[in-house]
Amino acid sequence: MAKAEATFHVFRGEAADAESGVEASGEYQEYKVPVEEGMVVLDAMHYIQGEDAPDLAVRWNCKAAKCGSCSAEINGKPRLLCKQRMDALPLDEPIVVSPLKTFPLVKDLVTDVSWNYKMNAAIPPFQPKEEDTDKWEVFENDVVRTQEFRKCIECFLCQDVCHVLRNHDRKDAFAGPRFMVRLASLDMHPMDARNDRVKYTKEEAGIGLCNITKCCTEVCPEDIKITDNAIIPMKERVVDEFYDPVMKVLRGIGLAHKK
């Protein structure tokens, strides 16, 4: 039996580089790849590297959806290349593979995601209420929420798909879903001593710019319920502190905790 063949249209191009005189370029190249059982798109990219284009740039590490390196867009959808099975794609038309569009292109499928690392470094680190962890009593129920958020593999697909970053380019004021999740994991941590996380979430991370379009949740390869479990609860906490007049009164007369 002849093996099925898939046609790929893979973005090839690079950013301008003044020093080496490289000019910005970009177009889709067509490649044919034989399809094998149980194959994923990353396998196809490796096939192309091995047979047709050894210089095809693509990030990948674990090939098991645990490291979040091989983020790209397949037929326009933000996906991990290693997690997109070929048998889930229609093979009668070209499979379009392109880099993340929210971040600056480096080369081919590789983009410059360093902005995310800057956002992460700006978030104040975990600060324990009690230094001696032998004194901690923390139960499973208290960490279920934080544990869900800490499953994040930092693939930045949520950052890529978020329209606040992608279409409105508000990287100046909005940290993006990934860091809403991170802030939620810190604020909901039963042993975190800081009480300014909600303020940070509103004023530095700009949670008000999220309008619950929920694309981040749709693309999360770890199935973290980003919107329902992280962003909305954090929005509600922001409301407690900044918008809810009743809470303000309650705090004023000492019936609610002061943050």
């Binding site: 690079e14 080496s20 490289v22 050894p54 210089d55």
Partner: peptide, 14 residues
């Protein structure tokens, strides 16, 4: 021997 430029060139890296 590797082809292409030095920018992010997996063939060269390998």
């Amino acid at each position: 021997a590797v082809t292409g430029a030095r920018q992010f060139n997996p063939g060269w890296h390998l």
